[in-house]
Amino acid sequence: MTSLPLEIRSLNVAYHRKMVLWDADLKIRSGRTTAIVGPNGAGKSTLLKAALGLIPSASGEILFYGEPLKKVRSRVAYVPQRESVDWDFPVSARDVVAMGLYKKIGWCLPVRSRHRRMADEALADVGLAEFAGRQISQLSGGQQQRVFLARALAQKAELHLMDEPFASVDAATEQAILALLKRLKDQGGTVVCVHHDLDTVAEYFDDVILLNMRVVAQGPASEVLTPENLRKTYGARLTLLDEAVVDLSRPGAPREP
């Protein structure tokens, strides 16, 4: 049996002295799309960042394809939150996407025209072919998000870890991201997204991890999104939404008005 794309065992993360993640255990299955869902402050982004070594973890084991990240970096691509960078930076969309190729290009060597072509292809895959030369501040929020996706795409990784790719994007971008998730999956890739929208989670993703400081439940969306699990994750606040979510979690179920 081949190793899982990502396996985390009892991961603990603390900011200063406040625990953010408690003994998080999770397994990401290969060739599937997984959403990490939970309330604000549940540690969703923290989980991704700790897995990638961007923030220190107090304890725990993190294995990518059965190995520590250091050994398999090229197989893993990270898509940070759009707000994490300064979009006023003097680079074009193509330049940002080419950053996904820097490791392949290697130290000190310049970006050549064939790399720019590869970057343009990745941009075309997210529907931004005609925006390649634009300075990044002149892109809309959704387009900026797609530039980030194109950069991960250019990296030709197998596991994609995305931090809130669907956060405040326009409908066109949402469609483009969905198409991209499907394509990555069809090519045998694995996608993990931090996701904030319970309404769409069952529709967009195969598997769901419910997170609130610890992993409440994980598995196929239809099994995980039960009223019981959601109550455990979100507390009593969500009771009114339960039925709607359960409806959505059954594929093909008609939406109640």
Binding site: K70, Y78, P80, V85, F89, M99, Q155
Partner: peptide
Amino acid sequence: CFDEAYAITAGW
């Protein structure tokens, strides 16, 4: 300068 977090994950 542009994206330190990504640079770390890419192994720089």
